[in-house]
Design a protein around this nucleic acid. Sequence first.
DNA 1: GCTATATTCAACCATATGGTTATATATTGC
DNA 2: GCAATATATAACCATATGGTTGAATATAGC
Lengths: 120, 120
Amino acid sequence: MVEYSSELLDRTFGALADPTRRQMLAQLSAGETCVTDLARPHAMSLAAVSKHLGVLEKAGLVKRQRNGRVHSLTLEPKPMQDAQAWLDQYRKFWDANLDSFATYLEKLQKKETQQDDADQ
Amino acid sequence: MVEYSSELLDRTFGALADPTRRQMLAQLSAGETCVTDLARPHAMSLAAVSKHLGVLEKAGLVKRQRNGRVHSLTLEPKPMQDAQAWLDQYRKFWDANLDSFATYLEKLQKKETQQDDADQ
DNA sequence: GCTATATTCAACCATATGGTTATATATTGC
DNA sequence: GCAATATATAACCATATGGTTGAATATAGC
């Protein structure tokens, strides 16, 4: 069984809940990138970008390597994999529900018809 | 290509970033449940539970059906599927990186050895 | 109609989040 | 050594989040 309550999952999903950070991850998936380059597409200060990177780092989603004054960021797969593993717990549920959606509607329809009959 | 910046993804990941709400989703995956039953496992007021349900509802993760004074909550698969689809964009990246992890370590080892040689 | 039950709403509080500007710290390269 | 560059830190602000308590609303059942 996969864990429900872990601070790491909190931080991971929390980090993913912001469009700026999701875009940064997308950019990082193309290869390692420095802070200034990560900041370029975003209309915000470097300080704000630095904070976002801090969030991503604290969630373990990126790793930082200092090369002189330039910090090189790389994507770390583990937390996203954990997040997907958590979501995967529900896949069976989805599949089951989607399979039976048509029949569910039919049953609902039948139930309501019976209800109408009872009312009259 | 899957979207990066959507308010729905914001809300979905945001909703998933809390252990209470994740546990509620887990409970709901066993079948539809009313508010009081969802509250039972949690050491907090009903008002707090009500707020959490509001968050899940706003993210589209649960649907509410009023049966008299009892509200029946059910899981809605779509937003979780979307979240997983977003994460899936990175699967190729992970696989690639994991495949080459051993060789990466080797390269790193070699690089450090060279560095040591240079230092001496 | 009255009481108990299921749930929400409103007001409040503490802390977190996402941004700003200004300042500090390292490093580079002349 | 000095000026420019890359980045972080501090202090601040507005708003969001996660909780509380107390009151309101709606339904159920006698």
